[in-house]
Amino acid sequence: MRVGALALQGDFREHLAAVERLGHDGVEVRTPDELAGVDALIIPGGESTTIGRLATIYGLMDPIRDSVADGMPVFGTCAGMIFLASGTTGVDQPQLGLLDVIVERNAFGRQVESFEADVRVTGLADPMKAVFIRAPWIDKVGADVEVLATVDDPGGGGEHAVVVRQDRILAASFHPELTADDRLHAMLIDLAEER
């Protein structure tokens, strides 16, 4: 299996290391040609405005949309989740609109509010050590989106979705690639193998 990571900006090397640990080939994707050669795509953590701008000017938006429409599985973490979403509360920025959710950027606050916590994810036996860095959460979830994990708003605003799945699209607002826990990456590879 060849698993690509969008390598415009962000922690794509950590994602590719996770792919390699699972015994698959990890490749960097910066162009539509490189995208055409992969069986699944990871959109890494990073700055979503930077990734969105570079993906737009280098003509990657439609090729990614077309590949996902053809059934290519995709996994986004943090900025990757924002980039996959259909909208962002309060701001306007380039997004793929593939995942039917509205996200809120920096929802937990600025860097001093960044944190790690154990999060239970549906389908995984043990909790994940989740690293949230200026992380988004999901404000609104579309009908076809399955919520796999939630966390409480530290401000008392109730629960918010932080891991979701819609068909072959998987997204997390935290960074499994910063830990040695590769279970969500394994889920992506299972989606690619089912295909």
């Binding site: 900006q9 944190f115 960074h175």
Partner: peptide, 11 residues
């Protein structure tokens, strides 16, 4: 968490 933000700025 501290080192992680720098990881996100890479590239």
């Amino acid at each position: 968490v501290k080192r992680g933000l720098a990881e996100m700025l890479k590239g």
